[in-house]
Write a protein that binds this DNA or RNA. Structure first.
Lengths: 190, 190
DNA sequence: CAGTTACGAGACGATTTGTCTCGGAACCGG
DNA sequence: CCGGTTCCGAGACAAATCGTCTCGTAACTG
């Protein structure tokens, strides 16, 4: 099956040239495959990219999120590790390409979210829910919102293509989400 | 000067068809302008899009951020208003198009950030800094991080093209950022 | 060994890109 | 009023890319 060769070629070219400058011809040439073989299985460039991200080992395996009993430490560790992945050259190219594909095609957006972003978000939600039930979070803590804030904050820094997020940024966001920044009810931060 | 006609046509087509399906020919035709006139002033599609966003009244004027003395209320009002703009059909198309342009071209990314995103972020930072000095925030509150979290969280929801952010989401994020979600030092939320 | 299927290769017309040339309109100096 | 200059709409053009198609070969089937 040349499917893997195609997805591998798509992945390489995606990282090399970005989504806009990726062509079907180039994928076919690098994969040593006829164009028709690509069109046989995928309807568009964005669909190939979506599958390449999902199957072609481009998608990093989920960063593990342990449960040591200390939710703040666990989330901090996770967010730092996740951020480090995002900020590698490969991770950044990937995110930019997938974001372009998402903007391009609604169906691809759904696929990518379900199979790429949502699992990370779900991981966070599950861990947060455990912590909430265990009394480490406020009983009415908005778990889905917290997960979105953690991911969205880091992603925003990557997508703006200005200063990429650092480990310190990840730490600050986690601290902020747990302790808040208001002055009335503050205990300690560090 | 046909500059404004070009930017206006680019804006219309951008909102109608999205960034990927926007063509220079179509812009020229709708603007009643020769293609050369476009190439005389802009180097690429992404550059035209960037200018269209910035000049062609596509960029919403800054949502005002008043100072009533209550930072949490002020930021809540602002974030809700800003989110409402993002979630209109026009706002969403615009954000998707600009994100695609940002992923496409590094120079355009810098321009768009400086003139489009950064002003909003700066507005938040200034207001937050005032509040911090006034003692409404913890003395060591990470002002730039907070601004990025507010904007990034909402933007993430728009870019994922799943459930768009609501006024409730904006409220939750603001509350979260001020009060935190940890259980040790919580007073009230509402 | 004949029939069938898969697929690499590439020709093809359509579309878009970016460059180039033409011709007319507006403005300028005399 | 007129010749010169500049601006710019219009569109021709080659190159690149798209998605479809056809061909020829290799592998598999019975």
């Amino acid at each position: 099956m040349s499917r893997l060769a195609i997805l591998g070629a798509a992945r390489d070219l995606l990282l090399e040239r970005g989504y806009e400058r990726l062509t079907i011809d180039a994928i076919a040439a690098r994969a040593g495959v006829g164009k028709q073989t690509i069109y046989r299985w995928w309807a568009s460039k964005s669909a190939v990219v979506a599958d390449a991200a999902l199957e072609g080992d481009l998608a990093p395996p989920l960063v593990p999120l342990p449960d040591t009993g200390d939710i703040e430490t666990d989330l901090g560790d996770w967010l730092r590790a996740w951020t480090e992945r995002l900020t590698t050259a490969e991770g950044t190219s990937l995110i930019l390409a997938l974001t372009a594909a998402t903007a391009d095609d609604r169906a691809v957006a759904d696929t990518l979210y379900d199979r790429f972003t949502q699992p990370h978000e779900q991981l966070l939600r599950d861990r947060l829910e455990l912590a909430r039930v265990a009394g480490q979070l406020a009983p009415d803590a908005p778990v889905p919102t917290i997960a979105g804030v953690l991911i969205g904050s880091m992603l925003y820094r990557v997508l703006s293509r200005q200063a990429p997020p650092t480990a310190d940024d990840a730490n600050l966001v986690v601290r902020l989400v747990f302790n808040g920044s208001g002055n009335r009810s503050r205990r300690t931060g560090v």
